[in-house]
Design a binder for these strands. Structure first.
Lengths: 237, 237
DNA sequence: TTCGGTTACTGTCACTTTCACAATAAGGGG
DNA sequence: CCCCTTATTGTGAAAGTGACAGTAACCGAA
C-alpha cells in the first residue's frame, strides 16, 4: 500500500479563484492536468512535512505565510491504475503569486481558474476533480467563520482586497458598506498597519494586517443564491 | 506502511454524550481503552467499507440509519510503537443504544462519557485522545448547520429529545421556547409523524422524523460561553 | 370525577443584527 | 482648479435573537 500527498493550492489571480495544476509527465494520465503531489520521500516522513515539501517544490513561496491544512483522504480501490494508492489531500492557500511558477518537478505548472475545474470543462487525472471540488468547498465554508481569507492576501492588504477574496471564493458580489462594517466589527480579525497606499488612481486605501483572532464572531455568512443567478456554471452540491 | 481505520462512535446515554471505547487485548497498550478499529481486511478493501465493517462488528446496529463520515487521517511517525501505521479516523453517530454492547472483537467495549476523555481523566491508547477530541469538535460544529443531530435520535423523536441532543453535545442548556421556534423555522429539518406518545407522565409529545433538509438555514448557533460557566471540565480550545 | 403532578407546547416584547441604499472624502492627473 | 477614480462612512426598515411565563394535555391518585 502506497501513501501519497496531494495539494489543492488556491490563490487569487486578477480577481479570480485559481488552483495550481501540473501537467503529468509520466504515464498514468500522461499529459493530463493533475494536482501537485507525490509519494512520501522516505518511510517515516511526517504527512504534513511531505505536504510542506511538495508545496515549496511547486511554488516559490519565500514568505513563510502559507496556510496548509489536511483536507481528506482518498483511497478508492480503482483511483490509480498502478495499484492501491491512498492519497492524503491537503488544502493550501497562498497570496496571489504574480509569477506563473514554472514547475520544478512536473512537466509544467499553471494557475487554472477554479471555474474550469468545477464546471467540468477541464478533465483532471485520477480523482483530482473531486479533490479540488472538496477543497474549494472547504475554503468556501471556512472563510465564513475563520480568518482564513487573509491567507489569500499578502502581509498588508486593504479591506477592498479582502472583499475581493470573499467575492472570488464565493462567486458572489458583496455590498461594500456592509462588508466594511462586518469585517471591522470582528475583534482582532484585521488590525490597522500604519500608512495608506493608492492603487488605480482614487483615494488611498488604509492598510491592514491579519490580527490574532482565528475564529470569526459574528461570522461572515455567505449570501444565499437567489435562484435567479445560477448561471455561473458552478454546481452547488 | 500499514493503513488502519479508527472509529469515534458517539451516542447519547441518559442525556450524556458518550463515546464507544474498547479495552485493548493485545500488546501495544494492552488493557488500555482505545477506539474501535483495525487494519483493512484485505488489500483492495475500500476505506469507507472498512469503517462500516468495524462499525457493525462493534455495535449491533440493525437499523441502517447510522451516520458515518471520514474525520481525518493521523500518521505521526511515533504514534504506533510497532512501526509506521497511518489511521484514517471516522466519525460515527448512532441513536442511543440501550445495550452496553459486549464487544465481539476486542476484549471489552463500553460507552464512556465524553467528558472523561475530554478532561483527560481517562488515558487512551495511541493518539486516540486527540482523535476523540477532534471528532467531538467536528460534531459540535456540524450540528450547528447540518441536520446531523437527528442521527443521535431514533427514527421517531420529539423536539425535547432533539433539544437534549444539542444540550449534551454542546454541554450547555438551551431555552425550550426558543429552541422550538428555531427548529421549526428551518424548512424540512424535522417533519411531523402521526400521533404522539407519552414519556414520564406529562402531556404526550408530538413525534417527528428527520426531513429532507441537510443544510440548516438559519443555523442553530451554539451559545457563547459567558466566562462564568467554564467549570464543567471541558476545555474550550 | 376531580385534583394534583408532570411534561409539552405556545406568544410577546425589547433589543440586536442585517440588509438595502447614497453621499462624502482623499488622492492623482490634466 | 476641475475631473476622475476609489475609499470610506451613516441611516432607516425589516428580520432575527434572547429573555421571560402561562396554558394544554395526559396520568394516577384521592
Amino acid at each position: 500500500m502506497l501513501l501519497t500527498v496531494d495539494l489543492v493550492i488556491l490563490t487569487l489571480r486578477e480577481g479570480r479563484l485559481c488552483v495550481l495544476l501540473v501537467e503529468r509527465g509520466e504515464d498514468p494520465f500522461r499529459g493530463m492536468p493533475a494536482l501537485p503531489g507525490g509519494f512520501l520521500s522516505h518511510d517515516g516522513e511526517e504527512i504534513l512535512d511531505a505536504a510542506h515539501r511538495e508545496l515549496s517544490e511547486e511554488t516559490a513561496l519565500t514568505a513563510g505565510y502559507v496556510h496548509l491544512e489536511q483536507l481528506a483522504t482518498y483511497g478508492a480501490a480503482g483511483r490509480d491504475p498502478r495499484g492501491r494508492v491512498v492519497s492524503v489531500a491537503h488544502l493550501a492557500i497562498a497570496p496571489g503569486l504574480p509569477e506563473p511558477v514554472a514547475g520544478t518537478d512536473a512537466s509544467d505548472a499553471a494557475w487554472i481558474p477554479a471555474e474550469s475545474v468545477l464546471s467540468g470543462a477541464l478533465e483532471l487525472a485520477f480523482d483530482h476533480r473531486r479533490i479540488v471540488t472538496d477543497g474549494i468547498e472547504r475554503a468556501r465554508t471556512k472563510i465564513e467563520s475563520s480568518a482564513l481569507a487573509t491567507a489569500f492576501c499578502g502581509e498588508l492588504f486593504t479591506i477592498a482586497e479582502l472583499q475581493q477574496v470573499y467575492e472570488a471564493v464565493w462567486g458572489t458580489e458583496l455590498d461594500t458598506r456592509n462588508f466594511y462594517r462586518k469585517v471591522q466589527a470582528v475583534e482582532g480579525f484585521i488590525v490597522p498597519a500604519g500608512s495608506g497606499r493608492k492603487t488605480t488612481g482614487g483615494r488611498p486605501a488604509r492598510l491592514y494586517r491579519a490580527g490574532p483572532t482565528t475564529v470569526l464572531f459574528p461570522p461572515l455568512s455567505r449570501p444565499v443564491p437567489t435562484a435567479t443567478e445560477e448561471d455561473t456554471g458552478e454546481k452547488g452540491n
